[in-house]
């Protein structure tokens, strides 16, 4: 099995889907000749030509709006927003139309499309290039929000997203794009959307995260387990919408303790929702308050300070310890 970065893995998934299905179209700013600013679509133009790999004018609302029209007319567009910080210009089309056509027409018209959005910090980039804003998307009914955390699941999930009958916002954690490699099988592999996975089982505490925060969370768990005897169950959400409430509820009901780790600002973030889900499903089994390790409610600082603001393994480990010791 070849060892791929997340960039290469998503590229492989897109390539294979384009090979398999000529309804799949890739469009966005610089996705063709340049292969995308992160090179996720590299080589696709040469293979599939300009009608299927479209370098669009610079207009995010139009990229999604036109994708909606393509999807309504039977194509399977995969649009790229160059950075999360520019993706808000597509929000009116996402909230106003992509998310609604199915409900609006009671299933007669649908929008099977994917919007890929590189997101999150940690790559020393300019302003607007480092935000984690998953809540903006996860709050919209009718939109699925997927966040891979590693090359292999990124490939399996992009395939699922392309085949999904609904609009999928595919948030790609930039920090994980080239941070590490993983074996990714050549043959088809698909993971279901809307399902979290238990990365490692445990009995004393549930740690929940997604995307780029999975690595520091795992590191904190491993460090802690070297220090003391604690069995920690680690959950990778993979999808923020629809949220896999069953896996979360079952795990915390079993362990009685939980820490949620998110990169984005604290208030109204996914961690807050997870705590509410746990209240509904496992309150009486809780041995400690559910703790969240999050970003702060400040404007995302320029990259000179970002390493101080994104939760470190040390912060996560402290939260794990406090929750275990409560």
């Amino acid at each position: 099995m070849p060892k791929l970065t997340m960039v290469q893995a998503i590229n492989l998934g897109l390539d294979q889907e384009m090979q398999r299905d000529d309804r799949v179209i890739v469009l966005g700013e610089d996705v063709g000749r340049d292969g995308g600013v992160f090179r996720v679509t590299e080589g696709l133009l040469a293979k599939y030509g300009e009608t299927r790999v479209i370098d669009t004018p610079l207009a995010e609302s139009a990229i999604l709006g036109a994708s909606i029209g393509m999807a309504l007319a039977g194509l399977r567009p995969v649009a790229e927003m160059q950075f999360c910080g520019f993706s808000y210009l597509m929000l009116p089309q996402l909230e106003g139309h992509a998310s609604r056509f199915r409900a609006r027409s009671q299933g007669q018209l649908t929008c099977p499309l994917v919007v890929r959005v590189p997101y999150g910090g940690g790559v020393r980039a300019l302003e607007h290039h480092s935000e984690a804003r998953e809540t903006l998307y996860a709050h919209l009914p009718g939109v699925k929000v997927v966040v891979p955390s590693a090359p292999r699941n990124a490939r399996a999930l992009i395939v699922a997203a392309v085949r999904d009958p609904d609009p999928v916002v595919f948030l790609e954690p930039k920090r994980s794009y080239r941070a590490f490699r993983e074996e990714v099988p050549e043959e088809e592999e698909v993971m279901p959307i809307g399902c979290a996975i238990v990365v490692r089982p445990g009995t004393d505490l549930t740690a929940i995260s997604w995307g780029a925060m999975m690595r520091p969370t795992l590191q904190a768990v491993e460090e802690l387990q070297k220090q003391r005897k604690a069995s920690i169950e680690l959950i990778d959400l993979l999808s923020l919408a629809p949220l896999d409430v069953e896996t979360i509820g079952a795990s915390v009901a079993k362990t009685g303790r939980c820490v949620v780790v998110q990169e984005s600002p604290r208030s109204f973030g996914p961690a807050a929702e997870l705590i509410a889900v746990i209240n509904d499903r496992a309150l009486l089994q809780l041995e400690a308050p559910v703790k969240r390790v999050t970003g702060y409610d400040v404007v995302t600082p320029y990259f000179g300070r970002e390493h101080q603001y994104i939760a470190s393994p040390a912060r996560i480990r402290r939260a794990l310890e406090e929750t275990l010791d409560f």
Binding site: S61, A62, L64, G65, A66, S67, I68, G69, M70, A71, L72, A73, G74, L75, P77, Q93, H97
Partner: peptide, 9 residues
């Protein structure tokens, strides 16, 4: 914009 996308299709 939907019109343009459908026309592309």
């Amino acid at each position: 914009l939907h019109a343009v996308g459908a026309a592309y299709a």
